[in-house]
């Protein structure tokens, strides 16, 4: 897939709404890009989209590749007498960045805004306003109209439309639609030596839940998790780890809060990257968690690793990534899978 096609796919996926447990539009958006490139495509009981791409028959390893479809968002939990929506977060959203935003409400994508008390009337208080004290205004006259247009349980997402920005691209939900785009690109390519199960998972943001079921169902010999991860490469008062940096290539996880990556897979990916001249970087150990955190402990255990595209401002309305990092991630994943043989993960 060339860069234009890859970015077009990323934009389309980024613009699609899909909070945890409500990933249906993302599945709909993905299907036409997978049909014809994989042997089978099905949805499981949790809503995971499972694509099976047969290998060349060189060996019989089953490999699970995942990228999660869900994004962080809000859910309507109550209505005020004035017709505003009370909300709770779905996944972790930084409350600092909600005031002043435009959002999309419900399947009809109704526009809404998050406003706060005018500065003239606000207390002199530097504390962040908690989400429970914020409301979403869709212009409803009263409680009845709000209840009808946005009943309890209605999902709310950021309103951003993806677009280029300088040498980078901007959009919402790059965590993990960037991973989804990379996985589609891989599945659209020629078969690999291993049997590949590409799973677009649900409910990562609320506890790595779709992946856990996918790991059990596929029962793979190894797993590669694709993510859009934190880049903290902004100016800081003190020297320290940037977690990852934009433009420095795919990000390898050695250990995060959810698991320890299999050292043999880490070695493999490093060797492959070095041989192919693909840049790579290590994610700051101990930060965050990914679908590998539940995949690795399914059934008899699954050696796992996470490859991520570095993104600034994830979990916010506008994230940034470098298209080169996305391309390099697809290339590094493909090259690694080509070199993954039973010997790599054998236990003598």
């Amino acid at each position: 897939m060339n860069r234009d096609a890859l970015l077009e796919l990323l934009y389309m996926l980024s613009n699609t709404p899909g909070t945890s447990g409500d990933e249906i539009e993302v599945r709909r958006a993905l299907r036409p890009h997978l049909e014809g490139h994989v042997e089978s495509l099905r949805v499981d009981a949790m809503g995971n989209l499972i694509a099976h791409k047969k290998g060349t028959g060189a060996h019989d390893l089953r490999v699970l590749l995942t990228a999660h479809m869900d994004e962080v968002g809000l859910m309507v939990v109550d209505h005020t007498g004035e017709g505003a929506l009370k909300v709770a977060t779905s996944g972790s959203i930084d409350a600092r960045l909600l005031p002043g935003l435009e959002v999309r409400v419900g399947p009809q994508a109704r526009p809404g805004v998050i406003g706060i008390k005018a500065i003239h009337r606000a207390d002199e208080d530097e504390n962040v306003i908690p989400v429970s004290a914020l409301t979403v205004d869709i212009g409803a006259h009263d409680r009845e109209e709000a209840l009808e247009l946005a009943p309890i349980g209605t999902r709310i997402t950021f309103a951003t439309t993806a677009h280029p920005l300088g040498q980078l691209v901007a959009g919402k939900a790059f965590d993990d639609r960037a991973g989804c785009a990379a996985l589609v690109a891989l599945l659209q390519g020629p078969p690999l030596p291993c049997d590949v199960f590409g799973v677009f998972t649900v409910q990562e943001e609320v506890g790595l839940r779709g992946a856990r079921v996918a790991g059990y169902t596929v029962a793979p010999a190894a797993a590669f998790v694709l993510e859009g991860t934190i880049a903290d490469d902004l100016p800081k008062e003190e020297e320290g780890s940037p977690t990852s940096e934009i433009g420095k290539g795919p990000v390898l996880t050695v250990m995060d809060r959810s698991y320890v990556a299999d050292p043999r897979l880490v070695r493999l990916v490093i060797q492959v990257a070095t041989a192919a001249g693909i840049p790579y970087q290590f994610k700051q150990p101990g930060i965050g968690g990914t679908d590998a955190g539940t995949i690795h402990f399914t059934r008899e255990g699954v050696p796992a690793i996470t490859l991520a595209i570095p993104c600034r401002y994830i979990h916010g309305p506008v994230a940034l990534l470098d298209p080169q990092d996305l391309e390099h991630t697809v290339a590094l994943l493909r090259a690694s899978l080509e070199q993954l043989t039973p010997e790599v993960i054998q236990r003598p």
């Binding site: 909070t19 809000l74 309507v76 939990v77 709770a88 349980g153 609320v206």
Partner: peptide, 8 residues
Amino acid sequence: ALEPLPGH
């Protein structure tokens, strides 16, 4: 009544 539970 509908009980909204956005996470756990």
